[in-house]
Every structure is written in C-alpha cells, then in structure tokens.
Design a protein around this nucleic acid. Structure first.
Lengths: 218, 218
DNA sequence: TAACCTATGTGACGGGTTTCACATGACTCG
DNA sequence: CGAGTCATGTGAAACCCGTCACATAGGTTA
C-alpha cells in the first residue's frame, strides 16, 4: 500500500476537526465549509483542505463538506469508528479520574480493565469494574481483549510496569507518568505530559511571548 | 529587547530536557552530553544543541553540559524558577486529580484556590483547600494572587466559566474541557486534550503508521 | 440550459525548523 | 607543555509543512 507520510500535526488536527464536527452535528448543521472549520480551530481554510486532501476528496465544490459524512470519514481515518478496549493501570488520582472520563467512552475507548498493585485497592469497584492485581496483567489483559494500556502509576515504578505491559503483548501505550519510558520499536508509546502546557504558559508570561496561530492547539 | 522567535516545539522540548535533567541530577550525574540528552528524548544531538543555543552557550566543548546548572538555566527560561499561584475550577474527576497531582507542585505550580458551582462541593476540603463558590471568583482569585486558571468543568459550561475568568483579569488559562474556547488576544490559552493522544495511537495502529523521531513527544 | 456563484482540491511557493558538517575550544594525558 | 581527543556551537543545506492562488466543478437561478 503506497501511502504518503502523514505528519503528526495533521493527525492531531483531524482530532480537532472530529470534535468540532460532532458539535456541528449536534447543532443540526448539515454542511460546513473549510473556512468555518478553520475559524473554529484558529487555522486557515487552506490548512483544513490540505489536511483532508491527504485522504481523499470529501467535499462538494461551491458547497462545503457534509458534516455527518465527513465526521464518519475522519473517524474511520483515525480508527475510532470502532471500539478499543483499554486497560488503566494505577488507580490513584489520575487513574481514577481517567476511568470516569466520559470523553474517552464517547471516542470509542472503552475501559474494560483496571489494575493496581495496592492490596487496599485491589477488588474495589470503579465505575462497575473490579480492580485487578497488576500481577495478573499478563493473564487478564489478553483475556479481556485489551489493546491499549494507559499507565497512571507513580514515575519511579512506571518503567517496570511498562516492561510487564510490553511482555504481555500490548502494542499501544499511553503514559501519564512524568518520566521517559523505553519500549521496543514495535510498540506505540505516547506521552501525556500535563506539566508541559503549564510550562508553556509560564514561558509565555515571563517572556511576553507573542501569541501566534499555533500549529497545534493541543 | 531584541528576541528571536522561539518555536513552540523548542519550548516543549525544553520541558522534556528539564524533566530529564532532574532525573539525571537525582542520579547524581554531573554532566550530560547533547547526545545522551537526545537519546533519552528520541531526538538528535544537533536538535538539542540548537534548542539550547537560542538562549546562550551553556556547555563545555569536549565535555558536555553541567547538569545542575543547565537545569537551573532552563527553569529560568521557562519561568519555573519561581512559584505560580494556580486556581483549579471544577472539582470533578479531573479537577480533583489535578489538585492532588504532585508533579505540578514540583514544577512550581502551587494550587492556592479551588472553585466549583456545586453546592454540595463548596466548602468541602481538598488537600487542605476549601472549595469556594465560583460566583466569588472575581473577588477571591485576585485576593489569593491567582495567576493561572485551570478549567476542569464540563464542556457545555466551559465557555461561560472562561468568560468570567477573563473578566476577573486572569491572563493565563489551561483548559481541560473538551471544547474550543474563545478568549481575547491578550489572554494565553492552552488546551489539554487527553483524547488526542489516544486517537493518535488508534490512527497509528489502524494504519501501521511508522514510528518516527517525533518532533514533539508530548 | 446557460450563466453565475461559491468553495473545493491542488501545484507552486515560501518560510521555518531540523539536520549536517566542521571549526572551535576545553580538557586530558603523556 | 604540547599533542590528541572530544563534544560544543553554528553557519549552510536540506527538508518539511503551511500558505497562496487559481483552475475546477457542483449547485443555483432565471
């Protein structure tokens, strides 16, 4: 399959478009122009059209894009036109917040397992899911069809946890622990660094940094 | 003050360097080369050197960078060599997780106020802080010296909340609500979109997307 | 059906960011 | 103290990404 390199920025923007399209759909709007989409995301119309053009022609000249159809197309491109089974590891502050985070479910990410290594937490119930002992990850995760693992454990133990997760055959990991993790090349690892944006704000304020049309509004 | 445009990517990488330098310092390592720093972040040594060179010459040829000194320099650049007073608005799942998130404190972001509009939550105690009524934001936030507001309220009310926050004179906002917010040009707004990285993982898996040296590992 | 209007899709362009490559300078060892 | 080694700092080159501008085509109206 011949495929152009799609930049990370483009993918992230598709996420933005998807969200906005869902809003437009909820408002009952039938079509949307690249201009309107761009205005909402603080991007340029050309940017929107270019992003979409990597994947096909979804619009109608002179009219715009059909909202529902485009939403479905982007969902398909991103792979969220289906359900993904997710395990959350670590049910501390962050972990339990994620378990309750409705936006994940809305995007098709279904949390089916929760793990922890704290005896006091194991067996307790979060949103209808019994917390399992992380020791049993290798058995229980595949059994439950887990495809994505979210790491929400303290930094110091995150590498050990991720090693076990990789050994259990998981190929996609989202890490909330504030450390750099090492994984084999065939495992997808993404990091969610919540301090990063605060630090950006800090930098901007200290330096009176000029706001710009950010390439990526996270 | 004449200053080059510093790209967003560079600032984000400085955050990464800062974190890694803290780890290295904790390990007792005295110096670090651009190569070692690059390997840890999956970047190139040239990238690291270029990023730092925007702000000065911090290294010693033939030797590398002094860990502690560089850490302090970057902290100063990012503006985190001081304390920032932060208010968290909305003490639901995400909000209360953020209040307890130790990494913020470690980076100098001190949560001094918590607001909500739910009578059942107002007055309750989170990590030693009494939850205030959001109605009183305009009075209490300036009084407490709040400089940054974190929005952790449900999407549908986020724009109203942010409008009030702006009216109260806050110039820096970190938004966790999954919606696009509008703020005046002189207000710094950053978004934390936690679904975005999950969607990236989804895209990568569906498309067998080749891992690359990502410009920005969030 | 024809003319007009409008917004897409896309090649060309331009700017900005990353990578390259090497001169430079600091430290080390004999 | 001088030669050798090593990693920085930085112009130049390469590359990638976003913007521009317009030909194109679908819709609409008369």
């Amino acid at each position: 399959m011949e495929r152009k390199r799609i930049s990370e920025s483009t993918i992230h923007r598709l996420s933005l478009y998807l969200r906005t399209l869902a809003e437009l759909d909820a408002d009952g709007q039938a079509t949307v122009s690249s201009k309107e989409l761009a205005d909402r995301e603080k991007l340029t119309p050309a940017q929107v059209r270019k992003d979409l053009s990597f994947f096909g022609s979804f619009g109608t000249r002179g009219l715009g894009y059909p909202v529902i159809e485009l939403k479905d197309k982007i969902a398909r491109i991103l792979g969220v036109n289906r359900t993904w089974n997710v395990a959350v590891i670590g049910v501390g502050n962050i972990g339990s917040a994620l378990v309750s985070y409705k936006e994940f479910a809305r995007q098709g990410f279904r949390i089916v397992k929760i793990f922890d290594n704290d005896q006091r937490k194991i067996g307790s119930n979060h949103k209808g899911i019994q917390v399992s002992d992380f020791k049993d990850f290798a058995d229980e995760a595949p059994e439950a069809g887990v495809e994505i693992a979210i790491i929400a454990v303290p930094g110091p133990i995150a590498q050990y946890v991720v090693d076990d997760v990789v050994r259990a055959g998981i190929k996609a990991i989202l890490n909330f622990a504030p450390v750099n993790l090492r994984v084999p090349a065939d495992v997808y690892l993404r990091n969610e660094n919540m301090s990063m944006e605060l630090e950006y704000l800090s930098f901007a304020m200290v330096n009176n940094h000029v706001q710009k049309k950010t390439r990526r509004t996270v």
